[in-house]
Each structure stands twice: as structure tokens, then as C-alpha cells.
């Protein structure tokens, strides 16, 4: 089946991209001014100490060799050691991953569950002008408010009127579900609002686009019921732009997690990264950037494949 070849090609491209990305991250961190070497070695005066450190981090080896060593270590799950805390980065990342993943999952879920139906409904329905303009305004507002602005406002609002939700006070879900949800509600809300606005707008436009295409007219002329039309024609045909937008949103989520975890004191990868950056802990920053990038490439690859599965016209073309 040609689809298998397509998937294989996509995976190959993704792996290659990941390699290129890791190369770029490594080079950026190590070679350019202000990078690894200068920061570590710069302030050190005595030659002996410099030599010791150079040896410890293997900085005198040729760059290619450094890269290979680093790449191999990474593939084995060894992300080095935090320069501040002297603990393995990998272990810390694993410890903090659940919080970030939960935040991401809840945000995506909320975004899609709220945004998709609203978008479809507003695309299909015949709405009055005032409702349309209102929705447009709200959607634009949701998309224009930066997450840190919304987050900060939410922090303020909910510190004055608690409503049972907390800022901070995170506990792992399995230990204390109530406390967990109370702490995660606001960050999820902050991250979801721009997502909902984006998904709603894209879904609506995509549905409108499909609605005006010829095969909907044909379906109507056959007397198909509205639910049949949505199921058979609209969902599959309108889903492509929605997929694109979800990918964009996932990318924004990764960046947003840094901001939101900081604001709401959620001990996830984002907060870890931000602390590391402020403390000039390069090992951690580099690892975090690498992880995010790899994830992104993987997600993009999955979306590409999903695209091809949904729209048979794409399979026919050479990628």
C-alpha cells in the first residue's frame, strides 16, 4: 500500500530533522560567543582549574567528537548534570514531566472540547449579525490576550475571590486529586483560552469553506439530514486546517508552559527550565530545548501522516 511508503518516508524525514535540530542546538550552545565554554571558563583565572574543568567536560576534544559523545549520551538518556544542583538532568526531567504533561493534556482537551463544537456550530448555523460580531470580537480578544496577561489577571482575581481554586499548592494527581485539580484549573484555563479562540476561528472558517463547496449542495439535494451531512462531509473535509492549527497550538503550549508554570508555581519542566535559565544553568537549558524540539518534530510528523490519511489527494503526490 502506498500509504506505508509515505509513512516510512515521513519517519525518515523526521529522524533526519531531529538530527539536524540536535546539531543546531549543540552548536548554538557550544560554539557561539557567550556559549558554554566562555561562561564556564571565562571567570576562572588559574590555568590548573581551567585544565581540570576542560578535562571534566571534555572541552579540548574536537567539536565533532564532543558532539558525538553528547549525542550518544543523550540517546542513552544521559542529559548531563545540572551545574547548579549537581543532580542528573534526566532524573529531574522525568520527575517533573507528569505535571507538564498533565497541564498540556488538560489544555488540549479543554481547547478541543470547547472550541470544536462551538466552531462547527457557528460555521453551520445561520446567525444574526450581532451574534456573529460578538463572537468575532470575543474570539479575537481570546487570541490577542497574551497568556501571561491572562494568567496574571486570573491570579489576581482568584486570590481575591478564591472560588475553591488555588494558585500553587500543586500535588501529584495520584496523591491528592482534589488539590491537584484545584491547582491545575487556573493554569489550564490560562492556556486554553487562546487555544479555544484559535480553534474556534479556524474551525468556523474551515466549516464555512466546506459548506460552500459543491458536494454539500449535492448532499443537500439528496435530502441528507444535517447530522448526516456533518458526519459524512464536513468533519473529514474540514479537519485539515484544524489539524494545522492544533499543531501550532501545541508549539505555543510548550512555550506557554514555561510562563504558566512560573506564574502558578507548578513544578513542571517549564518552571525547571526557567529557573535554569535565570541561573545560567546551561546543561539544563540545552536539554530542555532539545526535548521540546524533538517532541515538536515528532508531533509534526504525526500530523503530516494524519493529513495524508485524511485527504487522499495528498497521498498521490510525491512528498
Amino acid at each position: 500500500m502506498p500509504i506505508l511508503g509515505f509513512i516510512g518516508a515521513r519517519i525518515g524525514v523526521a529522524l533526519f530533522t531531529m538530527f539536524v535540530v540536535s546539531l543546531i542546538v549543540f552548536i548554538a550552545m557550544h560554539l557561539l560567543p557567550g556559549g558554554f565554554e566562555q561562561i564556564i571558563l571565562g571567570p576562572i583565572q588559574t590555568q590548573a582549574t581551567r585544565d581540570a574543568i576542560t578535562n571534566e567536560f571534555g572541552l579540548d576534544a574536537p567539536i565533532a567528537e564532543q558532539f558525538v559523545k553528547w549525542a550518544i549520551a543523550v540517546l542513552h538518556g544521559d542529559f548531563g548534570v545540572s551545574m547548579i544542583t549537581r543532580t542528573p538532568v534526566a532524573a529531574e526531567l522525568v520527575r517533573r514531566a507528569p505535571a507538564t504533561l498533565q497541564l498540556a493534556a488538560m489544555s488540549i482537551f479543554t481547547t478541543l472540547v470547547v472550541g470544536l463544537p462551538l466552531g462547527i456550530a457557528s460555521g453551520i448555523g445561520d446567525t444574526r449579525r450581532s451574534v456573529r460580531v460578538g463572537a468575532r470580537l470575543l474570539g479575537a480578544l481570546g487570541a490577542s490576550t497574551p497568556d501571561f496577561v491572562l494568567g496574571t489577571i486570573l491570579v489576581y482575581v482568584f486570590s481575591v475571590w478564591a472560588l475553591g481554586l488555588t494558585v500553587g499548592g500543586y500535588a501529584p494527581f495520584l496523591e491528592n486529586p482534589i488539590a491537584n485539580l484545584r491547582a491545575m484549573a487556573l493554569p489550564t484555563l490560562t492556556l486554553s483560552v487562546p487555544g479555544i479562540a484559535l480553534v474556534l476561528r479556524t474551525t468556523r472558517e474551515s466549516v464555512l469553506n466546506v459548506m460552500t463547496s459543491g458536494h454539500i449542495t449535492t448532499a443537500v439535494s439528496r435530502g441528507e439530514s444535517p447530522s448526516q451531512i456533518v458526519r459524512r462531509h464536513i468533519l473529514r473535509n474540514a479537519s485539515l486546517p484544524i489539524l494545522t492549527v492544533t499543531t501550532m497550538y501545541l508549539g505555543a503550549l510548550m512555550g506557554g508552559s514555561v510562563i504558566v508554570e512560573t506564574l502558578f508555581t507548578i513544578p513542571g519542566i517549564g518552571l525547571y527550565t526557567w529557573n535554569a535559565l535565570n541561573n545560567r544553568d546551561y546543561q539544563v537549558t540545552e536539554s530542555a530545548v532539545l526535548i521540546f524540539s524533538i517532541l515538536l518534530v515528532a508531533v509534526n510528523m504525526c500530523v503530516d501522516i494524519a493529513y495524508a490519511l485524511l485527504d487522499p489527494r495528498i497521498q498521490g503526490r510525491r512528498s
Partner: peptide
């Protein structure tokens, strides 16, 4: 262009800031 677009801005920012300050 597609590859570049996939990168979230904050992550790029982290990288750039640690290099260029």
C-alpha cells in the same frame, strides 16, 4: 520554512537569549 515555523517562539527565545544575552 515549515521547520522554522514549527519552533515555538519561547523556546527559540531561550536559546537565543542564552547565546546573545
Amino acid at each position: 520554512a515549515d521547520a522554522l515555523f514549527a519552533f515555538p517562539a519561547i523556546i527559540l527565545g531561550l536559546m537565543t537569549a542564552s547565546i546573545l544575552g
